[in-house]
Amino acid sequence: MSFPGLINSWAAMALMMIGFYAVIAHGNLVKKVIGLNIFQAAVFIFYISMAKVRGGTAPILGDNLTLFSNPLPHVLILTAIVVGVATTALGLSLVVRIRDTYGTIEDEEIRAIEAAE
């Protein structure tokens, strides 16, 4: 793999770990959701970089165009983005309801309340 592809992979992996860290380490539920989003975005970048063909154009039929980028990963990621949006929406709405019933969105405080019950 040549230079741009490789650097994209590194970047994707770095983002992935940042996001994953946020999911695990942060006690704030909204920050967890944000971390999840970064994590997923990293995967999207990873897929899109994978599809890039050197010198290739967008995969649209036209005269004198023989070299295309691979369109399949793009399509896949389009689907994955939709799924990601749905997950985020659901996650955030759960956070709203947790805030309504517990009065906090801090993991530790919720745990303290649950332990006290």
């Binding site: 997923q40 897929y47 947790i98």
Partner: peptide, 23 residues
């Protein structure tokens, strides 16, 4: 609610891991 949220986080991480592997 917290159980569902916990599951959502872990489930999404799992699914994303799966997508990475598939990629």
């Amino acid at each position: 609610l917290t159980a569902a949220f916990q599951y959502l986080i872990m489930g999404t991480v799992g699914a994303t891991f799966y997508v990475i592997g598939v990629g």
